[in-house]
C-alpha cells in the first residue's frame, strides 16, 4: 500500500511538484505520463525516498517513508533510474548481483543465485552474463539494470517497483518484454509505477494512468478514462484520435501528423537567395511511356 498525501517539492525556489495525492494498492500497475518537465522523474525520486518532500508525506505500508531504516526500505522498494552511466568494466552478472548486496545477510546464497539466474533469464541476458557492461549497447545496459532492480525485490512481493523510463534505448521487442514483466509482477501483488513516454505502451500494459502537467496531477484513472483526444491535447499539445481495439478492448492513440514548412521556421532559408531545386518528378503516365519505350 503506497499513499501519497499532498506532497509538494521545490528546488532552488522553483516549484516542481504541487499538492500531489494518490494511492496505489498491491497489484496495480500505474503508468506516469506527462510532457518533458512535467515532474515525472521528480515524483519518482520522492517516492524512492531519495529526496524528501517539502510538505505532505509518503506512506508505505502505513509508515512514513522518511522513518524507514535504509536496509528495510531496500527490501520494500526498488528504483530503476533514468540514467545509469557506468565507467568501470563490470560484467553483466556482477551488476545484476549488486541488486542482492543488501540481502547477503538476510537471504541464503541459494536464493541469491536463483534470483540472479531467473532475472537474467527473463531479461534475456543469459547469453551476455560474462560480457563487460562497457561493451553493451544502451538498450542492453538498460536491461541489465532492470534485471538488477528485479533481483533486489525478487523474494518480496509486498513491495513497490519504481521504473523511470525503463524502455529507454530498448528495441521494440524488449520494450514490450519489459512492460510485460512489470505487468506480470503486478499480477503477483507487486505495486508498479512506471514512467513512460510511449502512450500506447502505457495503454496496453498499465492498469491505471496518471498524467502530470506542470507539477500537478491532472488526471488519474483507467487508460480508457484518461486517454482521450482532449487530454492528449492538454497534456502534450498534440492532436490525436483515440480508438478502442476491438479484440483487446485497449485504447489506441493515433497522433495526427504535424506538418511544417522549413522556410517558415528557418528564416535563413528565406532571406538568403537559395537556388531552387526542382526535382524532376516522374508522373505515372510518363513512367508508363518510359517503360513502353524500353519495351
Amino acid at each position: 500500500m503506497l499513499r501519497v498525501e499532498s506532497i509538494s517539492y521545490k528546488l532552488n525556489n522553483r516549484p516542481l511538484l504541487k499538492d500531489i495525492s494518490f494511492c496505489i494498492r498491491p497489484g496495480e500497475m500505474v503508468a506516469l505520463l506527462g510532457a518533458n518537465g512535467a515532474g515525472k522523474s521528480t515524483l519518482m525520486r520522492l517516492l524512492s525516498g531519495e529526496r524528501k518532500p517539502d510538505s505532505g508525506r509518503i506512506m508505505l505500508y502505513g509508515a512514513d517513508i522518511k522513518g524507514y531504516n535504509r536496509k528495510v526500505l531496500a527490501t520494500k522498494r526498488a528504483y530503476l533510474q533514468q540514467y545509469n552511466p557506468i565507467t568501470m568494466a563490470f560484467s553483466v552478472k556482477e551488476i545484476v548481483m549488486m541488486g542482492r548486496y543488501g540481502f547477503k545477510s538476510l537471504s541464503s546464497a541459494k536464493n541469491d543465485q536463483l534470483a540472479l539466474t531467473e532475472t537474467m533469464e527473463i531479461c534475456g541476458l543469459t547469453d551476455l552474463a560474462d560480457r563487460s557492461m562497457l561493451s553493451l549497447s544502451g538498450g542492453e545496459q538498460q536491461r541489465v539494470h532492470l534485471a538488477r532492480i528485479l533481483a533486489q525485490l525478487w523474494d518480496n512481493k509486498d513491495s513497490v517497483l519504481l521504473l523511470d523510463e525503463p524502455t529507454n534505448n530498448m528495441d521494440i521487442q524488449f520494450q514490450h518484454q519489459t512492460l510485460a514483466i512489470a505487468a506480470a509482477m503486478a499480477k503477483k501483488g507487486y505495486m508498479i509505477i512506471v514512467v513512460l513516454h510511449e502512450v500506447n505502451l502505457a495503454a496496453q500494459y498499465a492498469s491505471r494512468i496518471i498524467i502530470l502537467k506542470d507539477g500537478r496531477k491532472w488526471w488519474d484513472g483507467t487508460p480508457v478514462q484518461v486517454l482521450t483526444p482532449q487530454h492528449m491535447y492538454t497534456a502534450f499539445g498534440i492532436h490525436a484520435q483515440a480508438y478502442t481495439d476491438q479484440s483487446s478492448l485497449k485504447t489506441i492513440i493515433v497522433p495526427k501528423e504535424i506538418k511544417l514548412d522549413a522556410g517558415k521556421f528557418n528564416t535563413n532559408l528565406k532571406t538568403t537567395q537559395q537556388p531552387v531545386y526542382k526535382l524532376k518528378t516522374i508522373e505515372t503516365d510518363e513512367l508508363i511511356n518510359l517503360q513502353s519505350v524500353k519495351i
Binding site: 531519495e50 552511466p85 543488501g102
Partner: peptide, 17 residues
C-alpha cells in the same frame, strides 16, 4: 564501492550508507 560504480545513490537504494 561496487555500487558507487553505478551511481552514488545506488548504495543508498540498496540499503547502505
Amino acid at each position: 564501492l561496487n555500487l558507487f560504480a553505478i551511481g552514488e545513490n545506488q548504495a543508498e537504494l540498496i540499503g547502505l550508507n
